[in-house]
Amino acid sequence: MSKRRERIVFALSCLGLLALWQALSMAVDSPVLVPSLLDIVKEAWSVIRSKAFLLNLGSTLLRGAESFALIAAVSIALAVASHLYKWVSVALRPLLLLSKAVPVMSIILLAFIWFSSAAVPVFSAFLMGFPIMYTQVFSALESLDPQLEQMCLVYGITGKRRLRHFVIPSLEPYLIVGSRQALSVIWKAVIASEVLTVPGLGVGSRIQLAQVQLETSRVLAWTMAAVLLTALSDGIFEILLKRKASWR
């Protein structure tokens, strides 16, 4: 399929989904169950214009950034340790398996029992995102090209220079892919935590309160803000990946 046709089909599918929603809302005829597209757009506009919009979005953004920084630092440190000492990677295996298997909601609820509510979003996002980032960095380190490794040795590219010219460039694509995948679960975990713990500010808190008040169109408007966050972080890393891959 040509790029052009791909785009046309994609756009038609988007329109189809919107049309389906509109048809459903007209058939059900209840703004609480399925609000019309116009209602949602109106609501989204009023949400965006409200003073609290940036504060709420910013709070969620900050929580996400905090857990991302934590994930990046801990994953890289532990991946390097696992690469150098096999026992570290084996010791981490149960934790990785556990965090993959345990439902997100269980983690959030347990965190809510154990910690103050402020720590819940960051903690649960960390637990969800850490295995993703760690696995990427660790596998990147394990798959460093042994032929290039030997070349570096023979040509005196050692120590810091080996790190700068060989190791870090080898890791870059994995770091970018890991960051992107980790961020997409971070947003989900942070917002889900906010829905459950309802901090003063946050996209999740707004969704929760709108739901309690049966303001379905506002639930959807804030959900769109959450989608925006994911799209934004995805876009940034997409660009980074393209820029870094100019040598391919």
């Binding site: 032929q147 290039l148 070349m151 040509y155 060989f166 040598w247 391919r248």
Partner: peptide
């Protein structure tokens, strides 16, 4: 200080 020329070029692909 022996230098090696390998069967493969072994260049850094990002340079």
């Amino acid at each position: 200080g022996a230098l090696f020329i390998f069967q493969e070029p072994r260049l850094l692909p990002w340079k």
